[in-house]
């Protein structure tokens, strides 16, 4: 696809142009952390922005989603479970990081494959365009390069922005991205000089990633050896089994479906769920195969670093964003766990 230029001084015009046809979401600082908020004209891309607290996965896999509804009564439509009306207005995120974008591609495997297509996920993702911002200054907790991603990785993005000094180089990666740039009036082609600068930015940023996590031997380990490894009790001791890691993680996709009823109206709602919580594996019979904390902690890391690796054969279910490392209340570090698993 093509490389175009957006003049930095015209960035607000670019956002305004996008706003004419869709909702524009930008990382905005509120309290002490960033979250994606609709662009109303005043917000700007903050140069201090590293990443949002919550991952953008909530844009496509909603925290709580009304899937179906049903009513008692005798009128037309009652006594039948209907799909809840949902609209999927076009949206664009400007400023998403490549790790979070790759996460969408990764999670997409789960919700959009030949066997199953989740209509809510598929529709929401289709109506969303991702304009990424490459990381010039990766955090010390980022380890994207160890897990098949990188500060300028293009997978999952429709457009990738490079800060080449005076301007931004906008690389259209998909047709959707190409169309978006056209719509916003971005026409000026980037010359070879700027393209070279962009490539240099990528190289420089990749070298800046300090955290290197060994994951190369995970696929060769025997599953049962890892499962029965002696270190799980130790790793899991501090864990308080909250949902922080799973809720902040861009690649965690587990959900729980709940029916809520008020008088004659019922709703079937999908909420985020966490394998860390004790009820996650509670069966209807009352049996729970993972009552112990260590079992649940082991499950999460095995899923991300082994089961997913074995099932799809192209790396771990982690994009190295570092949110779990930064926000786990007890500092359980996936990098340390991966090291231990890799070295077993």
């Amino acid at each position: 696809m093509s490389d175009k230029i957006i003049l930095k001084e015209r960035m607000q015009d670019f956002l305004e142009a996008l706003r004419k046809t869709r909702e524009v979401l930008l990382p905005v600082k509120e309290k002490e952390f960033y979250r994606l908020k609709p662009f109303t004209g005043a917000e700007k891309l903050d140069p201090q922005f590293q990443n949002t607290r919550l991952s953008p996965k909530g844009l496509v896999l909603s925290e709580s989603e009304r899937m179906f509804e049903y009513r008692l009564g005798k009128e037309q439509g009652a006594q039948i479970v209907h799909e809840a009306p949902a609209d999927y207005p076009p949206r664009v995120v400007v400023g998403i990081r490549p790790c979070d974008a790759k996460a969408f591609a990764l999670v997409n495997r789960n919700f959009d494959n030949p066997e199953f297509k989740d209509p809510w996920w598929v529709n929401r993702l289709a109506s969303l365009t991702l304009v990424g911002l490459g990381c010039d200054e990766p955090c010390s907790t980022c380890f994207c390069t160890s897990v098949g991603c990188g500060p300028f990785h293009e997978e999952g993005l429709d457009v990738l922005l490079f800060d080449v000094g005076h301007d931004l180089l906008a690389r259209a990666i998909t047709e959707k991205g190409e169309r978006l740039l056209m719509e916003a009036g971005v026409r000026q082609e980037a010359d070879d000089d700027l393209k070279k600068k962009a490539a240099q930015l990528k190289e420089k940023a990749e070298k800046k990633i300090r955290s290197q996590v060994p994951t190369d031997r995970l696929k060769d380990k025997k599953l049962n050896d890892l499962f029965n490894a002696p270190f799980w009790e130790d790793v899991a001791f501090a864990c308080i089994n909250c949902g922080t890691c799973t809720f902040l993680c861009p690649t965690c996709w587990c959900f729980d479906i709940q029916d809520e009823v008020k008088k004659n109206q019922g709703d079937r709602i999908r909420n985020w769920d966490s394998c860390m919580l004790p009820l996650f594996t509670l069966h209807a019979s009352g049996h729970n195969p993972r009552t112990q904390k260590a079992q649940r902690v082991r499950q999460r890391f095995m899923h991300k670093l082994k089961y997913y690796v074995d099932k799809y054969g192209d790396g771990v279910a982690c994009v190295g964003c570092g949110r779990c490392v930064n926000y786990c209340p007890v500092n359980i570090d996936i990098r340390e766990v991966a090291k231990r698993m890799n070295a077993l």
């Binding site: 925290e63 308080i240 089994n241 909250c242 949902g243 922080t244 799973t246 809720f247 985020w272 966490s274």
Partner: peptide
């Protein structure tokens, strides 16, 4: 609040085998 229950789980007082929300 995302209902992650980090507050509940970090709290030493919250040791109910089944929390009322569960």
């Amino acid at each position: 609040c995302t209902r992650c229950y980090a507050c509940r789980n970090a709290c030493p007082l919250c040791y109910c085998p089944t929390c009322f929300v569960d």
